[in-house]
Design a protein around this nucleic acid. Structure first.
Length: 271
DNA sequence: AAAATCCTCAACCGCAATGTT
DNA sequence: AAACATTGCGGTTGAGGATTT
């Protein structure tokens, strides 16, 4: 027998979430907690499948989400973790409280891969790629950015870095550089990161990361150990004013453990 | 100013892993 | 142990905004 679909999709809404839907979901979860995603939309009055609700909550509505662009330190860490773990985004995300696997995956695919390409590094193994291939693969925009960043000097630095930062690495007749040991590779990459001024790069490359970073640090802290307390940084939490106000006006929020169990309701609903 | 193209990221899909009966 | 339900994960898509032509 084949697997049953996770939910009956007939009549369910898809696509971007509306403010009202967000309200309903946040309100329901903050008041009741999460016991079973499948029944959350039904009890919250949403025409969504549980999977969609879960994703929306985890990737966007969770109070402990860290918002804003990635810092250069975070990027460095992502690159290092990716070298060790590969595309195991949830594992990588576990090292970044408040960041989601989806967010990191997107950032990797849209920014970091390109950045490594600029540097002449293969994003999969951080090994230098051939100069010719690297040049050929640039599109016009890449070239523009490359010029703006003025990092041709930096690319040269990559080539000449050794473990002690003083010697040239061995080059083959094809002008490739090989690193054998992955730990050594990571050490070299860390050195590279410290050599390059990525902060400057980022601020030139995209003003989003720097401008949003300045207001996004730990906008919300959720103490879920006892009687919960949520402090909200007014500058950056929810983007929707109404939702922001709604959260802001809450006098107190119960801890997850203190939520009234819905087991009875759910089992009743299931019958 | 308009059209074309590019880029980002929220959301979806299918599958695997895990839990429950 | 088997069947089924639910959750979690990673790959992919596509809408919409930004940029270029």
């Amino acid at each position: 027998m084949g697997r049953q679909p996770c939910c009956d999709k007939v009549g369910l809404k898809r696509g971007p979430w509306t403010i009202e839907e967000d309200h309903k979901l946040v309100s329901f979860i903050l008041n009741n907690g999460i016991h079973c995603w499948r029944v959350v939309p039904k009890l919250a009055g949403l025409l969504r499948c549980g999977k969609s609700c879960r994703l929306r909550w985890i990737n966007y509505l969770r109070p402990d989400l860290k918002r804003g662009g990635f810092t250069e330190m975070e990027e460095d860490q992502i690159i290092q973790l990716h070298a060790r773990l590969g595309n195991r985004w949830s594992k990588i995300a576990s090292h970044f409280p408040g960041r989601t696997d989806n967010e990191i995956k997107n950032h990797w695919n849209t920014r970091i891969k390109k950045k490594l390409k600029f540097l002449g590094l293969d994003s999969m193994n951080l090994k230098p790629i051939e100069q010719k291939q690297q040049t050929d693969n640039y599109d016009d925009k890449d070239k523009t950015n490359h010029q703006q960043l003025n990092d041709s000097e930096n690319v040269e630095n990559i080539k000449s870095l050794d473990s002690d930062g003083t010697k040239e690495m061995t080059k083959t007749e094809e002008n490739k550089v090989f690193w054998d040991d992955s730990d050594e590779l990571l050490n070299k990459f860390e050195m590279l990161c410290s050599t390059l001024d990525w902060g400057t790069w980022i601020s030139q490359d995209t003003n989003i990361s720097t401008t949003t970073n300045s207001v996004s640090s730990s906008s919300v802290s959720l103490d879920d150990t006892t009687t919960s307390h949520i402090s909200i940084d007014e500058s950056s939490y929810f983007q929707h004013d109404s939702l922001h106000q709604w959260v802001d006006n809450m006098d107190s929020i119960l801890s997850w453990d203190a939520f009234n169990p819905l087991d009875q309701d759910i089992s009743f609903f299931e019958k």
